[in-house]
């Protein structure tokens, strides 16, 4: 049964990918024919559409996976990879990059990534000074760090040039894959794939994090080290994706819950389903973002809208979450 579901999801992914290749603002009745006859369409297809669809696929599966890992570690289905202030800090870093380097994309991405990591370190340092439950103290530290960087974003938005910098910051904070080209896709792959491979091989032991401390220890989990290593990898995955796509919310929160509904809590089943669902969901959202209206719509708007609808669906059927 589970194999059939997985095969169905793989077929669905292939279908959505193919459809995404065929959907775009460049209207055409027969794209296959145009590919051979129309040089403009061929360039658009090869240079822009393919890398953008594949980038959506990658960042969607990456964000969903980071969300799943975070939910397992915190044993909380409402956690996501942006916890611990990573999202807001990455947003702050990107806004600072836009302001200081006037939109140089490499610096914007480096700043976003760098500040995401800084937020993680600060959250960990603060939680280290709080007595009591380590997981709870990490979440509380994350809320505080998130608020600080959120205020920082507000200051940068106030300082930004309203003609060119402010719209760039706002658009970036809402997430977009409009700038996806082959070099961006390759950069995304270099960052994301190693972390995804790490979690793939580590998926068996991830199950242990979901158990009580004592049971996990008796099963051989070196709790502290492995906890931090998994958390660090998850946050690195999130902040590196945010550095490329901007803040794209809800994927890391909602997709793992649906993946568990489909595949159960065992990570050897839920990880592949999470990867597939995350990719499908993000590709559909990005198709809408780039093709629904003549103007490019920020990706985060669709992930938030569809994600919230799915969240309502989860709440209505909450007995299935367990």
């Amino acid at each position: 049964m589970k194999k059939i579901r997985l095969t169905g999801l793989i077929a669905c992914l292939l279908l959505v990918t193919l459809l995404s290749f065929l959907i775009g603002r460049y209207q055409n009745d027969n794209p296959f024919k145009l590919l051979s006859s129309n040089n403009l369409f061929r360039q658009l297809f090869l240079q822009l559409r393919i890398p953008r669809v594949l980038t959506a696929l990658l960042i969607g599966s990456g964000l969903a996976l980071a969300g799943l890992v975070t939910q397992i570690i915190f044993q909380n289905p409402l956690a996501d990879g942006g916890l611990l202030g990573v999202s807001q800090a990455a947003g702050f870093g990107a806004a600072l990059g836009i302001l200081v380097f006037r939109g140089n994309s490499i610096w914007v991405q480096l700043f976003a990534f760098g500040f995401g990591v800084i937020a993680l370190i600060i959250s960990m340092l603060i939680s280290g000074r709080i007595r009591g439950n380590k997981i709870l103290s990490l979440i509380l530290a994350g809320i505080a760090v998130s608020a600080i960087f959120s205020a920082g974003i507000g200051i940068l938005k106030y300082l930004a040039d309203p003609v060119d910098q402010l719209p760039a910051i706002v658009f970036w904070l809402l997430g977009s894959l409009a700038g996806s080209t082959w070099p961006v896709l390759i950069r995304t792959m270099i960052i994301i794939l190693p972390l995804m491979i790490f979690f793939w091989f580590y998926r068996w032991r991830l199950n242990l994090h979901a158990m009580d401390k004592e049971i996990a220890f008796s099963l051989g989990l070196k709790n502290k080290f492995e906890l931090w290593a998994s958390l660090l990898a998850s946050v690195l995955l999130t902040s590196s994706i945010i550095s490329i796509s901007g803040i794209v919310g809800w994927i890391g929160l909602i997709i793992p819950n649906y993946a568990r509904m489909i595949a159960g809590s065992d990570t050897s089943n839920s990880i592949p389903v999470t990867l597939l669902l995350g990719a499908i969901f993000t590709m559909i959202c990005d198709d809408l973002a780039r093709a629904l209206l003549p103007g490019e719509i920020p990706l985060g708007i669709f992930t938030a809208f569809l994600g919230a609808l799915m969240f309502i669906g989860l709440l209505v059927n909450k007995e299935k979450i367990a």
Partner: peptide, 13 residues
């Protein structure tokens, strides 16, 4: 509502 970002596909269209 202001300047609206358009992608290359729309410009080509």
């Amino acid at each position: 509502g202001g300047w609206t970002e358009v992608n290359m596909e729309q410009i080509s269209n």
